[in-house]
Design a protein around this nucleic acid. Structure first.
Length: 204
DNA sequence: TGCCAGGCCCTCTTTAGGGCCTT
């Protein structure tokens, strides 16, 4: 697999447009199917953490108050991932926060996101659902720690990506999984997955 | 009081509606 950066945000809500801010981010670099570098930090954006978010994630107001400023963390994580292609589970969510938090420090995203949830819907159509935790159990992925914390979810997404690559290699004899192929697969109609991959292999 | 975003996908569709998924 080509070298990719996988990220996951914990936030105070669902939309930066509604005032939600990031509370934690994790990123890993996946190289040849192995996690070779980690970045993880809580961040203080100067907002209160709603009670139900603390219940969900375990992230408290005290933890955020003691964390480095959001601007410092975003500069660090943006430098950490550099121009590597980005991957996230339900990437439309993380892309919104990545773009919003980066814009606050005067930076803009240079690369595209690929989405493991959209690809998993096609690769694992019989999974009970396509939540990250459900897919981890369905594919019997290694335990990565407490769900709904940024590094645990980031590592789980990395394991899911590797498992999907193995599945696609076995099922369709693809050579390897690239970011470009992920971007194609996430837009293919579920029923067209097989024919689309075969066409891509023939064209390669 | 009740509701709250947005992109994607499916279908009893396309001049739409509702479920999924993320926090």
């Amino acid at each position: 697999m080509e070298t990719l950066a996988i990220i996951d945000f914990e936030t105070t809500g669902l939309s930066p447009g509604e005032g939600a801010r990031a509370t934690e981010i994790a990123a890993v670099v996946l190289e040849n199917g192995q996690i070779v570098r980690h970045y993880q930090s809580l961040m203080n954006a100067g907002v209160r953490v709603p009670f139900f978010i603390t219940n969900l994630t375990g992230i408290t107001n005290e933890m955020v108050r003691c964390a480095p400023p959001a601007a410092k963390v975003m500069q660090e994580v943006a430098d950490f991932v550099g121009d590597l292609p980005l991957v996230a589970h339900n990437a439309s969510f993380d892309r919104k926060f990545w773009d919003a938090e980066l814009s606050r420090v005067g930076r803009t995203r240079q690369q595209e996101f690929a989405c493991t949830m959209l690809v998993a819907r096609r690769v694992y159509p019989t999974a009970p659902n396509h939540k990250l935790g459900t897919l981890a159990a369905f594919a019997r992925l290694p335990d990565t720690g407490k769900a709904h914390r940024a590094m645990a979810d980031t590592e789980m997404t990395a394991h899911l990506l590797c498992h999907m690559e193995e599945t696609l290699i076995q099922r369709f004899q693809i050579g390897h999984l690239s970011h470009a192929l992920l971007r194609v697969l996430q837009r293919v109609k579920v029923a067209d997955l097989q024919s689309t991959i075969r066409k891509l292999i023939r064209a390669a």
